Amino acid sequence: MTLVLPSWSDARHEAHRQGVRLAADTATDPGAGPVRLDLASALGRTLAGDLAARGDVPGHDGAAMDGWAVAGPGPWVLGAPIVAGAVPSDVPLPTGHARPITTGAPVPPGTEAVVRSEDATVGDGRLVRHTPSTRRHVRPAGEEVTRDQVLFAGGTVLTPPRAALAAASGVDDVRVAPVPTARVAVLGDEVVGAGVPRPGQVRDVFSHTLPAVLGTFGADPVSSDRVPDDPDTTARVLDAARERLVVSTGGTAGSSTDHVRGALARIGAELLVDRVDVRPGRPMLLARRGPTVFLCLPGNPMAAMVGLVLLGGPLVAGLLGRPLEPVGRVRLAVDVPNDRPGALVLAYRATPEGAVPASHQTSAMLRGLADADGLLVVPAGGGVAGEDVPPVRLPWC
């Protein structure tokens, strides 16, 4: 009987679903609920609920540019100036009168238009328009935002422009989702932390990079450890984790030194995704025990990075209450063969003609990924030039 593995897309959706599920299951845990922060502190965080405006934007009918507020046909008799920050007047502007006004200042009742500074001249105490215009140049109250209008839905990341709009709408603080903690475990006796590895060894390329990638997803990586190829040690490290997310590299295949699957079983973790029908990254695993989810990636560098992007990003998004990022389409500039079963993930460079796979990329190589613009997913059977295939965004691009 042939085991049917989940597709990359199904696994991606499952990772997001499991993140949402874990967040819901642990919402009542101490310290797991939303927190309220001022706008500056909340930048980059995820809104825990819909954010509504506290006031109109603008809060009054105001001048869209420097000029004169006028009523009736000209020429107009000039009155006192109005500047930005002035208290809105409740005294109507009489017909045939004009008042100098600066951008953003409140226009008085009865104002029919703001005549731009460059469209009129002043002489003998009167304002004369010399450039016809049908535009009012007045921003009505609530033109951009109305009070109690939802600015952003829960699950939205508070970017600087969004925080600026929130501030303009009278918001001072927001409720944000708690940041999920994450631990990285790099497995393998052959992994060394510094210098040029001797024959038979490889350099640790994960301890300093995977935490950074997890940070771009929105997680808080609290530690990174190297773990030897030992079943007891592997089980002990996984068992001791108290973070929301544990990401491991290596030990997921079926050799005599691959102990992750057995360790997960020993600690009572439920296996949620058992390999994925994709290359590189096929032997990745997703499991959960209590309030912790384990994303176990292959040890080859490109395979681990592919697995982290494909499943780690959606998983953290689910934990934060963010929606799953949609996948678009990218056009191939060249033919891309794939004569093996399952999807093929390739790093690509964007060119005017379309996507071109990067050179120097296998499951063990990083050179092609280092300067890539994204990942593309080629289905079994391959793709031809001019055909659209799904891309996956690289979080550091």
Rank of each mutant, 00 (worst) to 15 (best):
V306H: 02
L310Q: 09
M305T: 04
V336F: 14
N338R: 14
V345I: 09
L310C: 12
R340G: 06
G312Q: 10
D335H: 11
L324C: 14
P323G: 10
L344M: 01
P314H: 03
V316W: 02
E325G: 02
L311N: 04
P337Q: 05
G321R: 07
P314Q: 04
V309D: 00
L319I: 12
N338F: 07
L308F: 08
P326S: 11
L319V: 12
R331H: 13
L315E: 02
P341S: 05
E325V: 13
L332C: 15
L315C: 07
D339W: 03
A333M: 13
V345L: 00
G328W: 13
L320M: 10
M305G: 02
P314S: 00
L324W: 07
L310G: 07
P314R: 01
G328I: 12
D335E: 08
A317W: 11
A317P: 07
G342C: 06
G312Y: 12
V306I: 07
L332H: 14
V309R: 02
G318T: 06
L319R: 09
L324I: 14
A304V: 04
E325N: 00
P326W: 11
G318M: 05
P337W: 05
A333Y: 14
L344G: 01
A303G: 15
E325C: 00
L310F: 04
D335Y: 09
L308Y: 05
V316H: 03
L311R: 07
D335R: 07
G313E: 15
P323K: 08
L308I: 06
V309F: 01
A317K: 08
P314E: 03
G313Y: 04
G328Q: 08
L320W: 10
G342A: 05
R340V: 08
L344H: 00
V334W: 09
L320H: 11
L308W: 06
V316C: 06
L315A: 06
V309W: 00
A333G: 13
V345R: 02
R331I: 12
M305S: 02
L315S: 02
L311V: 05
A303N: 03
A333W: 14
R329T: 15
E325W: 07
E325I: 01
G312L: 10
G313Q: 15
L308K: 04
V309G: 00
R340A: 15
G307T: 05
L315T: 06
A333F: 13
A303R: 03
V334S: 08
G328Y: 14
V316N: 00
R329G: 14
G342Y: 02
R340T: 14
G307E: 01
G328K: 12
G307R: 05
P326R: 10
A304C: 02
A317H: 15
G318Y: 04
L315V: 06
V336H: 14
G328H: 13
R331Q: 15
P314W: 03
G313K: 11
N338G: 10
V327C: 09
P323N: 09
G328C: 13
M305P: 03
P314Y: 07
G321I: 06
G318R: 05
G313T: 09
E325D: 14
P314N: 03
L320C: 11
A304R: 01
G307N: 02
